[in-house]
Design a protein around this nucleic acid. Structure first.
Length: 535
RNA sequence: GGCGCUAUCGUCUAGGGGUUAGGACGUGAGAUUCUCAAUCUUAAAACACGGGUUCGAUUCCCGUUAGCGCUACCA
């Protein structure tokens, strides 16, 4: 007989906390417990980082626990090295967890009452719980081969029917089951889905309900034999772990929305209360393609290497898909975000990752950041120009901090600092002369006169040039030549830096003169002018 | 193919049966500074489309389109 599966989602735009789910399951014993459960199959990217962040903020806001759990049941795709990176990235972002696995290579399986926190260390747990379900006849052994299932699906697809498992192994007699077992036929363990619609509350989407006919009996344990048991499957382990770890709110990417009915069925089979869900919208690129599907460019390490500040990235991510009730500020420090974070205000629609906006925010955090910290972060970008940090004298260190302070507000990310400050270590005067924007300025007669006047003064001066002396000179030259404003200053700026756009002379001149005393290849004011004028 | 999710300025979003559709970031213009950055003032900028329901729809319903997800013994 034909089944007509229907899936009904009742959208409640601003989901109300319908008492059914909320009270009975969550409000029970109070403390909020959430988890971030990444799979170590690659580098942490922005979408996962945002999921981790929302869990973390939510936990901190509610004074609850944030748990890190490693989902490594897919032996083929998981790699312990990614777990190490994952942990590094999370720490860099400042998302510390209350419970989680120990670092790889250390003894023990984790800190926290619900250890272990790595699923590969929990295999016996999953096996025993599956056994329980089998005994209660809520689950059954499925002897279908992949080929059987594939054929079934093709047949269904050919008739434009939903590809739901027929459940033919549900009704196997115990005699047949025993015979298969004796013959060592591999079997998977599947859960029986009941007749009742599967429903749950999603904080960002409202009450969600799936008709049971639309859901296949989910595999709990992959194919195996009694001697070589199969590995449990994601939908099953995630549910067991969330229940056992007393997770109250499951906050995750919306790619799991369609998995949720299966998980709800598992909760029900065990008689466990169903947590609240919050399925976060995807983060997409400019082409509306899901960012997590894209290769490179969006990994957290990638941002770190380019010199993004963790607080900027975290601030940006927090506001991608959520905004505070007053919604006024773009740059909002973490404590504020924690204070005003509410899950109910998370948007359901996909958010576009806007690199320019991130840059903007990063620039802000660079501007307000401590120069010493920034300098420490930026040092690596000056490899080849500066000695290693250990070899550098205190004077070089101090000079570098001032340098960073000068340029920091004009870069989007720290790795751009090198290009900004490069001229201090000297530049090719011919290249500077021929640069389009400089040609016209330098062609003017007045420019030549100004530089000649300046060169004469520098030559007669034997100490370091100070901003005060410079100002006096420029006043004199202004008087002598009648030039002023841009006409007066631009040629000098070009001679000193090679460009017209740079920092204030008050800062520029000490940077040059102090740098020149350091023995790190910074030409002095005088050397610059003479070289440019061509003496 | 089946099922589901989503759709407001360029971006993040607020709002919600009657609004001058609000804010922030960005953009344009102006001011200021030798330049850049910063700052201040100011302007432009949006309800995907088509049908309903209604006195009235951007808002509710249906459909279309588009994007995305699930449709695995991946997570």
């Amino acid at each position: 007989m034909p089944v007509t599966p229907r899936v009904r989602v009742v959208p409640t735009h601003r989901p109300c906390h319908s008492a059914t789910f909320y009270d009975q399951n969550v409000m029970g014993n109070g403390k909020v417990r959430v988890r971030f459960a990444p799979s170590p199959t690659g580098l942490l990217h922005v979408e996962n980082a945002r999921t981790a962040l929302y869990n973390w903020i939510f936990a901190r806001h509610a004074d609850g626990d944030f748990i890190l759990r490693i989902e490594d049941t897919d032996l083929e795709r998981c790699d312990p090295r990614y777990e190490v990176k994952l942990v590094e990235d999370l720490k860099w972002l400042g998302l510390e967890w209350d419970e989680g696995p120990n670092e790889r290579g250390t003894k023990g399986t984790g800190k926290g009452e619900f250890a272990p926190y790595r699923q590969s260390d929990r295999l016996p747990i999953y096996a025993s719980y599956a056994e329980k379900l089998l005994k209660e006849e809520k689950a059954y052994k499925c002897f279908c081969t992949m080929d059987d299932l594939e054929a079934e699906r093709r047949m269904l697809a050919g008739r434009n029917l939903p590809q739901v498992y027929s459940g033919r192994c549900r009704t196997l007699t115990s005699k047949i089951v025993q015979r298969n077992m004796n013959a060592g036929v591999p079997f998977a363990i599947r859960l029986k889905i009941g007749e009742e619609p599967l429903r749950f509350h999603d904080t960002v989407r409202g009450e969600v309900e799936f008709q049971a006919e639309a859901v296949s009996d989910p595999i709990l344990i992959r194919s195996g034999t009694e001697n070589a048991p199969g590995v449990p499957v994601y939908n099953y382990v995630v549910t067991v772990d969330d229940a056992l770890m007393k997770i109250t709110h499951v906050i995750r990417g919306d790619d799991h929305l369609s998995n949720t009915p299966k998980q709800v069925a598992i909760y029900q089979a065990f008689g466990w209360s169903v947590p609240l869900f919050a399925h976060l919208p995807p983060i997409v690129g400019e082409n509306r393609e899901r960012l997590s599907r894209r290769h490179g460019a969006t990994s957290i390490v990638g941002f770190r290497e380019k010199g993004y500040l963790p607080e900027a990235l975290v601030n940006y991510l927090a506001l991608l898909g959520w905004d505070a009730e007053d919604g006024k500020r773009e740059a909002c420090p973490m404590p504020e975000l924690v204070k005003s974070f509410v899950l109910e205000r998370v948007s359901a629609s996909p958010a576009t990752f806007d690199f320019d906006k991130l840059n903007r925010l990063n620039r802000h955090y660079i501007k307000v950041g401590s120069p010493i910290r920034l300098a420490a972060m930026a040092w690596e970008y000056f490899g080849g120009l500066l000695p290693t940090k250990d070899d550098a004298s205190d004077e070089v260190l101090v000079w570098f901090v001032r340098l960073i302070e000068m340029f920091a507000s004009s870069v989007d990310h720290l790795d751009q600092l090198t290009a900004k400050a490069l001229f201090l270590f000297g530049f090719d005067t011919d290249v500077a002369r021929s640069r389009d924007e400089n040609v016209e300025v330098l062609a003017a007669d007045s420019s030549r006169t100004i530089l000649a006047e300046l060169a004469g003064r520098v030559r007669a001066h034997h100490d370091a040039v100070t901003p005060e002396i410079f100002k006096t000179w420029m006043d004199e030259i202004k008087e002598a030549t009648g030039a002023e404003g841009k006409g007066l200053f631009h040629p000098v700026r070009i001679a000193l830096t090679g460009t017209q756009a740079s920092i204030d002379f008050d800062k520029l001149i000490p940077a040059i003169e102090d740098g020149a005393t350091l023995g790190i290849g910074v030409p002095s004011f005088r050397q610059r002018i003479e070289k440019f004028v061509g003496v």
